[in-house]
Structures are given as structure tokens and as C-alpha cells.
Design a protein around this nucleic acid. Sequence first.
DNA 1: CGGTTGCTTGAGTGGGCTCAAAGACTGTGG
DNA 2: CCACAGTCTTTGAGCCCACTCAAGCAACCG
Lengths: 231, 231
Amino acid sequence: MTKRLKTECTTCSLSELCLPLGLNENELEQFSGIIVEKRNFHRGDYLFREGQVFTNIAAIRAGSFKGITTDIEGIEHVRGFYFPGELLGFHAIHSQRYAISLIALETSSVCMIPYPELFRLSRELPKLQEQLFSVMSQKLLPQFKVDPNNTAEQRIARLLLNISARFKCRGYSATEFRLSMSREDIGHYLGLATETISRIFKHLADEGVLEVNRRDITLKDMRRLQILACG
Amino acid sequence: MTKRLKTECTTCSLSELCLPLGLNENELEQFSGIIVEKRNFHRGDYLFREGQVFTNIAAIRAGSFKGITTDIEGIEHVRGFYFPGELLGFHAIHSQRYAISLIALETSSVCMIPYPELFRLSRELPKLQEQLFSVMSQKLLPQFKVDPNNTAEQRIARLLLNISARFKCRGYSATEFRLSMSREDIGHYLGLATETISRIFKHLADEGVLEVNRRDITLKDMRRLQILACG
DNA sequence: CGGTTGCTTGAGTGGGCTCAAAGACTGTGG
DNA sequence: CCACAGTCTTTGAGCCCACTCAAGCAACCG
């Protein structure tokens, strides 16, 4: 499933979204030295599992993942969707175990950063320590919050805008994209039935706000979508 | 509103829940040296405001706070309730501005820890750096998540159990406590109408799960409450 | 092809909301 | 000590959004 390669942060188009932000050339090389690239995650593969011992911070290079937890009754809860440039695993530093499982939604690749070495290096490179605090701090304000007061339409509009914005800042189209997750995943994430997702997509398409063909989405009227998102 | 005092972490009963965890006597003294105690927050006083420039991490010594954000339409959203021993403000390291407002729910006191000095000291004391990473990491798994799939009763049962557990680990009673927040705050937090909170409390009291007299709660049957929380 | 999985559509139900009003507690000033 | 206003909480009636259950449809794949 995995292949180890020398990773070159210097040539990575995502380095500005990632931990190397702010490091000079020499520091970047030291940082590059500790990371390992793993390739070839396919749909359904686990990046790590809930309960597994914490070893690495993971940085998504390509593809996408969903984060899930499984409750006492064995019901799967979708906690989030993750895209290139996003860092995963910081939540496990305290308990030394991952609290969520991460599952590839499509063919994906990831940089694995061994935490002990990251921690050691952060003591040597003040810039890296600063960036670590900054990145963790950023993660404390959830970029997307499912608000139970919002209607189904508002939740879906907000999710689409959120995903659109995240694609945009990675250099992809903000208006045309393929959703790598199923209607069921979206439903579990937003706290809605899959039927409701379908109905709202159809309704938004009827209103001319977007076009939808199974997982392919084209946003036609961002303005309206933003208005719908607010309510 | 505030009074500055020399603070003594060595004699603080909450130091095991707080940043000094793991520091030796000498390190603890250095840490104590950078913090400032502010007193006399009264109900409705702001600890800090959304948008305000980030200066301090705050540690609650006594009392309680609610965290709120205000959306574009001026509607207040309750983001959480905070109790003694809890650390607030880490989310602002990245943006250098607080993203939530914190409002005292009752007479409260707080230790203010200037971030620049905390950051500097963490470079000198590896144990402190480790504890900072650990504390921030811990905050990344929300201790309480409002799940829109849960019914009103489940949400309320879960909140009561969460508050009970937090009181317990601070040495207070797990079964008898006063809720410092209003029904409206609870409603906003859980995504329920205040009327629903009232009705569910009454229902739980009728069933013998708890006793409720306005803000005073006595949990009579924790087992049942746990069952109700799961559904 | 048939089997499997994921998506869409329809009909009926119910939990929690809204609207409305009454009741309980708190603080203030006479 | 009481009267009064203001705030918070409780209770009731009716309604609507999203759920559940059920079935049909579309895509994918051996």
C-alpha cells in the first residue's frame, strides 16, 4: 500500500499551506529530512484508525479523506472532510492515540511526519515551533461548524461554499468540482438523511443555483448560495 | 474591575489541570513569575471580546464563562461553557485576534498569562513546551459536540453528564450543582428553544432522573441519564 | 447480463419550533 | 416591609421541516 520516497518540500506546491511556511532554505532542508512520503491510498484505505498509537502527523498531498468516529453502538459519525495541504493528527499528541479514523475517499497521497522528530526539530528551529503553535491554534476554531439551528438547505449551502473556498485556495476551480464523498457521508456529517441531501440538491438545481450530476457539482450563482447559507 | 496580584501556582489547587503540570519547583516559580491574576469579574463582564487583539492566555480560577460569537446578522451563538482549570485563548495565536467573546456567568476570577512571555519561557523549559503542545492537542478533540442527530432529550442528558463530569474532576459534587447559565444560553448552545429546555427538564424530573429547581440541579439516577444520553 | 451499490422520488408522521400568555424570582425605592 | 418592574422560566396550542419507510431508477462491474 505504501512506498517511501525522499520528499522535497522545496518543490511542493502546497508548502505555503503546510508546516514549512516561514522556514528558510536551510531549515526547509532539515524539515524535509524528517518526513516520509506514503503513496497509493485508495478509496476506503485507512490513513490511521481510532485508538491506534500516535506516531505521525500526516499532511495530505493529493486526494481527500473523511474523518470518522465510531460510537458505543457501532454507529459511524463523520467528523470532517480533509483536502490537500491539510494537516492531520495533532489531536493525538495529548493521549498518544488517534481519536478518529481517517479513510481515503479517492486515490490519495500523504506525507507522514514522525512526531518525535518533529518535536525535536521544533526545539532547534524557533520558526518551526512558532508555525506549529500557529497551525494548532488555527485548528482550534473549526473552519466549519454544523449548526443545528440551520435548516437542511442552509447546512448544504454552507458546506458547498466551504468546500468551494477550500478548493479555490488550493488553486482548483471554486465553481466546478467533484464531491469525493457519498450522499450518505454528507448526510452523516451534516446531520441529515441522504434523501434530504438529494431533495435539496434537486431544489437548488431547479432554482438555478447550481447544476448537479451525481457527484459533479457546478455552482452557477454563488451570490444566491451565500444568501441561502445565511438564511 | 481588575486587581493585579502576585500569583502562586504552588498553592493553587487547580495547577494539576493547568499549564504547570509536570514542572519542577524551580520551573514552577519561573512560570508563576510571568502570570498576573485578575479578579472581580461579575456576571456579564467580558474577559475578552471577539476581534480584540490577542495578548493573553487566560486560566479560570473560579466561576464560569460562556463563549459566544456574533454572526453577520448580529445573532449571538453560544460556543461553549468554561469552568475552573480551563485555559482560554489558544485559538487566537494564529490570527492574533480573539475569535470569540468570553462573558462571565457569575463572579469569577482568572489568571492572565501574557503570550509573548509564555512563548519565550516555553523555549527555555522543554517540559512547558511539551505541556503546551499537549494542552492544545487536547483542545482539538472537542470535549462536547452538539450532534444534530440527537434528540432534545439526548442533547440535554449529554450536556448534564458533561458538566457533571467536569465538576467532579474539579472536586465538586457530580450530582448536585447550580447551572450558572440561563435556559436561553443552554438553548442557544444545544440548538434548542428555551421552552424545549424547560419541558425536557420537567419531563426528566417527572421520570425521577433528576430534581430541578430553577438553576439548581440534583442528578438522582446517573445510570438512566447515561442511557437517555445514548438513545 | 444480473447483482450490488448509490441516488432519487413519494407519502405519511412526529419532534421541536413558534406564538402567546401566565407564573416565579430578583432588585430597587418608597 | 411592601409594591412594582423587569427578567427568567414554565406551560399550552398549533404548525412545519425533516425524518422514516418504501420503492423505483441509474451507474458500475464482474
